[in-house]
């Protein structure tokens, strides 16, 4: 389990004029079959989450105990049923909502905060940089899972606390990546040139810095989503996140874990969808990385 942003070393892609660059990225993505397939999978997961009530025939919270742990392929329950007889497909479809929400939200919030802090640290003077980066070092001293579990454990279970704890965990690595790319961009010739021609600091930040640090930060954030989904589902799995009977993949996996001797296939299903979704985000990040020509951390 890792936030793999150990000291990131990022090369800035050759600066290309705004529109041309994004068009180039789009063309490269369109030629990348793996990324296209992965994008289709992610789109499907999102559509399932949005239209869950339309594509399922059962109530996610109601089941008949007489119907419990029916195998895959049972008439009327094509993915079988769970430990209290609820339709598993319905539960998984509804579960994608909370799983995506708790997995994606921390990364979005952490990216907004982290990128701002990182850019400020990269552009600001030595004092600001030291202040921000050394504070982040302290957070880096905790293994990420440990910190998330400790914060969530103290704050108490629940969706809000889980999102909060994961956000805190993801801010430091985003700050590091953003600071590192900002420092590199700042020393490039075209920024000097802009300053020399009289552009204000605000203009340089807007046109030169942000335009050029956006791709690496975006690529890095996509790779974090995969980890975030695993961790969020993991917190629920431990009973620290979404509480039953709410449908969420991690807590479903935990509940079904007791049934591995009765119906192992059903018991493993929620984890399989976590794996597929997390892998899709990882591959998406890989695809974006090569399309945007970004070299990311090690």
């Amino acid at each position: 389990m890792s936030i793999t942003a150990a000291a990131p070393a990022i090369s800035i892609p050759a600066p290309v004029a705004g529109k041309g660059y994004w068009r180039l990225v789009g063309e490269r993505l369109a030629r990348d079959k793996v990324t296209l397939v992965v994008a289709a999978i992610l789109l499907a997961v999102i559509l399932v989450a949005i239209f869950a009530p339309l594509i399922t025939a059962h109530d996610p919270y109601v089941g008949r105990v007489a119907n419990r742990l029916k195998p895959i392929g049972t008439p009327n329950h094509w993915l079988g049923t769970d430990e209290v007889g609820r339709d598993l497909w319905t539960r998984l479809a509804y579960g994608s909502r909370l799983t995506l929400l708790t997995g994606v939200t921390p990364v979005i919030v952490a990216t907004l905060i982290g990128a701002t802090l990182g850019i400020v640290a990269g552009i600001g003077g030595r004092v600001v940089n030291t202040l921000v980066m050394r504070t982040m070092d302290v957070f880096y001293a905790f293994p990420s899972v440990l910190l998330a579990i400790a914060i969530c454990g103290v704050l108490g279970s629940g969706v809000r606390n889980m999102i909060l704890s994961l956000t805190i965990v993801f801010i430091p690595p985003v700050v590091r990546v953003s600071e590192s790319v900002t420092t590199q961009v700042r020393s490039l010739d075209f920024v000097e040139a802009a300053r020399a021609t009289g552009a204000s600091l605000a203009m340089v930040i807007r046109h030169q810095v942000i335009a050029n640090v956006l791709s690496p930060i975006l690529v890095y954030a996509t790779s974090l989503v995969s980890l975030s989904i695993i961790l969020a589902a993991g917190l629920s799995f431990l009973g620290l996140g979404v509480a039953p009977p709410n449908a969420e993949w991690g807590s479903m996996l935990n509940a079904l874990r007791q049934s591995i001797y009765v119906n192992p296939v059903n018991a493993a299903l929620p984890g399989l969808v976590i794996l597929i979704t997390s892998m899709a985000f990882n591959l998406m990040s890989d695809g974006l990385r090569s399309a945007m020509d970004v070299r990311l951390p090690r």
Partner: peptide
């Protein structure tokens, strides 16, 4: 490698128990 980094390890644990202990 990508399966390794994308795997929810708690699920990997459950699957390994299913395979090597239960089955």
């Amino acid at each position: 490698a990508i399966t390794g980094v994308s795997m929810p390890h708690y699920w990997g644990a459950i699957v390994s128990v299913i395979l090597f202990s239960v089955i």
